[in-house]
């Protein structure tokens, strides 16, 4: 065991012991906070997947991805407005609206992201490495601008259409919404994993991520594969936006910039380019934030999250699940 690895395990062990102590002293509070972290982390995980896929394939930190996520919530809120939904209780209309709108938003966001890729990133495929980074930042501002123009700076209400059933079990309060968020996120991640590992396009993506030139020589259409990656990333971001809206019921135009940063951090945390890693990273960041808010103090959360990130990277330079790639 090398020294950095040792440091890493000491760090993990300390964190687990401290949390376990809390779990023993106040089990109710611990489980409650765990649920908060899990729901928030599930959403981060969905967004992080988009980052990690895009980074894996073209080494671009897609700063606009968080805004695609937010835009998903905006679009969802707008489309839901066409239905005679009821915010008071869960009606059949609500169910139908949900079943129609959820995939619709995912597809719309997928289309938008492919368009973004076509306009802002594809022409720069052979440009200096940082050029697409700047267009990504530009697209991020642009999307925020679209949302700003649409609804202004104030928070936007997202219809509250999920069942409001909630219950208390052994002092722990949770509702249908909490279950919904975690289950939907888990299903989506599972579907993605199957897609990447079992389908031809998934294989093409993995090949392109590993070695673009070799993949091209094998007859893979690089442009199509990259566009597909953006499309799938945005499907998940759109789903994330919908879930966010259904769960929190408020969005604002700058939400994505910050959440995107956190989600990207989650992707790095798990090992960038690694799909289970991104999902795990998202969950862990959500949990860290919730535990820090509740045990350390909310003003330290930012310091704790990024401090742990730096710590992990120092001890484990490729993230939690990242593979040690041999240096070229």
């Amino acid at each position: 065991m090398s020294l950095p690895d040792f440091g890493f395990y000491v760090l993990c062990a300390t964190a687990i012991v401290l949390l376990a102590a809390q779990a023993v002293i106040h089990p109710g509070e611990f489980v409650q906070v765990f649920i908060f972290g899990l729901t928030q982390g599930s959403i981060y995980a969905l967004v992080a997947l988009g980052y990690t896929m895009v980074y894996g394939i073209i080494e671009l930190i897609n700063f606009a991805h968080g805004d695609v996520f937010t835009l998903g919530a905006y679009v969802g809120s707008a489309i839901l407005g066409f239905f005679a939904i009821s915010e008071g209780g869960f009606t059949t209309v609500n169910l139908i609206a949900l079943l129609l709108v959820f995939p619709a938003v995912m597809l719309v966001m997928g289309g938008i992201n492919v368009a973004i890729e076509r306009v802002a990133y594809r022409p720069l495929r052979n440009a200096p490495r940082l050029a697409p980074l700047i267009t990504a930042i530009g697209m991020s501002f642009f999307l925020e601008g679209v949302m700003f123009l649409w609804h202004g700076p104030a928070t936007v209400h997202f219809p509250d259409i999920l069942p409001k059933a909630a219950t208390t079990v052994a002092g722990v309060f949770f509702g249908f919404k909490d279950v919904f968020v975690v289950v939907v996120a888990a299903i989506l991640v599972a579907l993605l994993a199957i897609f990447i590992n079992r389908t031809k396009l998934g294989k093409a993506m993995r090949a392109t991520a590993q070695d673009r030139d070799a993949a091209q020589l094998m007859g893979i259409d690089i442009n199509r594969t990259i566009a597909a990656t953006f499309f799938i990333g945005a499907l998940l971001a759109g789903a994330g936006g919908m879930i966010w809206g259904l769960y929190y019921n408020t969005v604002y135009y700058q939400l994505g910039f910050r959440s995107g940063l956190i989600a990207f951090t989650a992707a790095v945390f798990g090992g960038i380019g690694n799909i289970p890693g991104a999902a795990l990273g998202g969950l862990i960041i959500g949990l860290i934030a919730a535990f820090s808010d509740s045990y350390i103090g909310s003003k330290w959360t930012q310091v704790v999250v990024f401090g742990i990130l730096i710590g992990v990277l120092v001890f484990r330079p490729t993230g939690l699940l990242g593979m040690r790639v041999p240096e070229k």
């Binding site: 306009v119 802002a120 022409p123 720069l124 440009a127 050029a131 697409p132 700047i134 267009t135 930042i137 530009g138 697209m139 991020s140 501002f141 642009f142 999307l143 925020e144 601008g145 679209v146 700003f148 123009l149």
Partner: peptide, 15 residues
């Protein structure tokens, strides 16, 4: 339109 203009300028300049 502030944001849109700024974002547009960045993208256009880089392209």
């Amino acid at each position: 339109l502030n944001y849109i203009i700024y974002g547009g300028i960045l993208v256009a300049m880089m392209l």
